[in-house]
Design a protein around this nucleic acid. Structure first.
Lengths: 253, 253
DNA sequence: AAGTGGTCTAGACCACCAC
DNA sequence: TGGTGGTCTAGACCACTTT
């Protein structure tokens, strides 16, 4: 019980602080292996669970990554997708302004992985937004998007089932121009958008489906598309791997 | 060693799944106390660390909250701030469209807690954006914002030190209209904005400063303000308690 | 085959909170 | 004062990766 030697700080926090400092100082570089459980047990003379807790701290901050049977590695954030919320002003003055956060890849180079279309009752808030009856089924389109084979985004669209009945929107392949082109054809062209952004820790399903490293939150985008008459014609609920995305919005004062 | 009885699933995951199901089913409601370590040890006949790990799973998903000496409680997300990225179009058609995510409080009802102004070298990306020499000191303004006494936001502004020298921007109190009014007065009125949004787990400093419950990520907003001539005049780096915020952006097709 | 992280046990002492 | 969660120990077996 040499617990009174250190000034009230738990051992695992001291070990974690040491490792963090070493990573910050560049002693260990991204992708490199760092001391694992057995190493920490030896050098700090602690039990396995204590070493694990120190590593758990770093993992929860997204600094390291454990690979079963291989070791602990400094995490590297490489591919970043820049998602431009307002992308239509392509050739304006501001487009040349330097951005603080670099992003290698554009939103458009994603591939669709799987599509499902079905009719389900809409979630509470969605039904209110679409102005459909509370328990009535709506058209639900679920898609997953990949970047270089790695899943980075889940998207779920909700549309008024009566409105889109008989259109390609109820088919897996919506045809050229996608949902919005089809909505235009039936006289409900989206002309205005609202995006609501939140962030939280993923549940087990999201962690598995997006292949998330523990310690990675998800970013949620809920986009509502409005037609000319002000009617909400689509709600698109997106779940993003937050380590893969930078969202960008530009607007004038 | 009754490990082969269950089909490959770790005990702690099964316990966690049970608790999650109970919370989802409404057996335990937000703010209510749920079975703690000792209860789980007894009912599932497991060791303390196993029960803890089950609870750690729920905590990392932001579902529960541990209060030392008191017990484990279902987390409740109450106050949400709606931060409107583009708020100037106050009386347009879309303002009446129903939003999916409710938000009780507006961005403006925040109080400033502490302000510090100093000259420091700018971070790498910031210097490039502001177009200042790499190691040159810039004006750095740090502020913390409270909602009902609870910290919810850190904001750090970076400005060209030479540009703002002699203005109230270098003072803790920037006067009526704040930084942007002062920039206007010296002929660099911000007329265009870019906001870049990311999300990650907080470090220890952010967790303490924002009073974050474990399992809560932070949302990062990096706003760049541009003057008429296209010059970037301010970079504002914000760290938000993600459980307190919904970000909103509206724009036309 | 050796080493790694993942899971699990059966204990222990502590600081903190509610009663 | 008794119960709670937080920290810690000294073992153990397992699945997995690497060599």
């Amino acid at each position: 019980m040499n617990r009174r030697t250190v000034g009230r700080q738990p051992k695992y926090q001291r070990i974690a602080a040491d490792l963090k400092a070493a990573i910050a100082a560049g002693t260990y570089t991204p992708g490199q292996r760092i001391p694992g459980e057995n190493d920490l047990m030896a050098t700090y003379e602690v039990a396995r669970m204590t070493a694990r807790q120190a590593l758990a701290t770093l993992r929860s901050e997204g600094l390291i990554e454990a690979r079963k049977g291989a070791g602990i590695f400094v995490r590297q954030y490489e591919v970043v997708i820049r998602r431009r919320g307002v992308q239509r002003l392509s050739l304006n003055l501001w487009a040349q302004g330097k951005s603080v956060w670099s992003a290698d890849i554009d939103d458009r180079s994603l591939e669709v992985d799987s599509v499902s279309v079905m009719e389900e009752p809409a979630p509470k808030g969605v039904a209110a937004t679409l102005d459909t009856p509370a328990e009535a089924p709506v058209c639900v389109r679920r898609r997953r998007f990949l970047l270089d084979g790695r899943p980075v985004l889940f998207a779920t669209s909700y549309l008024d089932a009566e409105l889109v009945a008989g259109t390609a929107i109820t088919q897996p392949d919506t045809g050229p121009g996608g949902i919005y082109a089809r909505l235009d054809e039936i006289g409900h062209k989206p002309v205005h958008f609202r995006e609501e952004i939140r962030s939280r820790m993923p549940n087990a399903e999201e962690t598995a489906g997006l292949g998330l490293t523990p310690g990675t939150p998800v970013t949620l985008i809920c986009r509502t598309a409005f037609a000319e008459d002000g009617r909400a014609v689509e709600v698109n609920d997106m779940v993003l791997d937050s380590s893969a995305y930078v969202l960008e919005y530009e607007f004038d004062a």
